[in-house]
Amino acid sequence: MYGWIWRHLPGPLAVRVAEAVLLAAAVIALLLFVVFPWVEPRLPFNQVTTG
């Protein structure tokens, strides 16, 4: 999977490294600001009210 992505990144090595970092940052941002806020209330970790 990662090898496949690496092989399909265009450009010379330095550009590919930059692209890989950018891609990872995008995935992390998507998780932190979209996926986790959505999934969190559905998980039984942080309910603080009674009843």
């Binding site: 999977m1 990662y2 992390i28 998780l31 932190l32 986790f36 969190e40 970790f45 942080n46």
Partner: peptide, 26 residues
């Protein structure tokens, strides 16, 4: 097999990231 292993490692990283999110980002 290799892809499966990579997915498992990725899942572990995502869970760690979720802990980071719960404790710091929120």
């Amino acid at each position: 097999v290799r892809t499966f292993g990579e997915l498992l490692i990725t899942a572990g990283m995502v869970v760690l990231l979720f802990v980071f999110y719960e404790i710091y980002v929120t």
